[in-house]
């Protein structure tokens, strides 16, 4: 596929943690779970825009630091009684390298 952009190494992200990647479409949050699965979603809670990258990661979900919405990393949808969703970004791993499928105008800078 085209536009697979390298955004870093899995080792840059702590397990059950997240790092941010700045793109022209906004900040995305890249998560690494306990089992080394990697997900990327917009760093913007559907509730009040909280930075999801700062939340506590559990299973394949993150709890927003502002008001405790729980967002599925797999679907971007709010879990439980809350309703809303954020954009998910396709990710693939090549060895330790993480690649994200970004919009065409996003050209890798480094």
């Amino acid at each position: 596929m085209t536009n697979w952009t390298p955004i870093g190494s899995i080792n840059d992200i702590p397990r059950r943690g997240a790092r941010c990647v700045m793109t022209p479409q906004g900040k995305i949050a890249v998560f690494r779970t306990m089992e080394d699965r990697v997900f990327a979603i917009d760093d913007h809670c559907p509730h009040k825009g909280g930075p999801l990258s700062q939340g506590i990661v559990h299973g394949a979900a993150v709890t927003c630091p502002l008001h405790n919405w729980v967002i599925s990393l797999e679907t971007g949808k709010a879990l439980g009684a809350d309703e809303g969703s954020v954009r998910t970004i396709d990710i693939k791993l090549e060895g330790d390298r993480i690649l994200a499928r970004l919009e065409p105008l996003a050209v890798a800078a480094e």
């Binding site: 840059d12 700045m22 890249v30 105008l105 050209v107 890798a108 480094e110």
Partner: peptide, 17 residues
Amino acid sequence: KHEFQPMATVGYQHAAE
């Protein structure tokens, strides 16, 4: 240190932030 810096900045000519 990782907590305080973005992992990467892509799509800009220069790292903007």
